[in-house]
């Protein structure tokens, strides 16, 4: 049960959150213009690092806001949270 620092509500138990995977994956500006391969990248391919990971969390049982977090995927230690990175673009 990690303690996740919601930038709006403060630290809360992990069960209040919904995980959103890698942060910073932007929806293509013009999806119709990208190749099938690039579209597949957007749909299905995400970074999966062992170590520091910038990821998205939703405070689903709280303020319902998405926010970004850096976490070490080996220790599960939260490195920081930053409400300015709530958007992907």
């Amino acid at each position: 049960m990690m303690l996740i620092p919601c930038p709006w509500c403060g630290p809360r138990d992990e069960i209040e959150f919904h995980y959103g995977g890698q942060a910073g994956v932007a929806y293509p500006q013009d999806p119709q213009a990208v190749s099938d391969q690039d579209w597949a990248e957007f749909l299905f391919f995400r970074d999966n690092p062992r170590g520091e990971f910038a990821e998205r969390w939703l405070h689903a049982a709280g303020c319902r806001r998405w926010f970004g977090l850096r976490r070490d995927t080996v220790t599960n230690r939260v490195l920081d949270s930053d409400d300015t990175r709530t958007v992907t673009q």
Binding site: M2, E14, I15, Y19, F53, E55, T73, V74, N76
Partner: peptide, 13 residues
């Protein structure tokens, strides 16, 4: 567990 992790352990809940 919903999140990415290489920790070889999960959450107790």
């Amino acid at each position: 567990d919903a999140y990415n992790s290489y920790s070889q352990r999960g959450a107790f809940h």
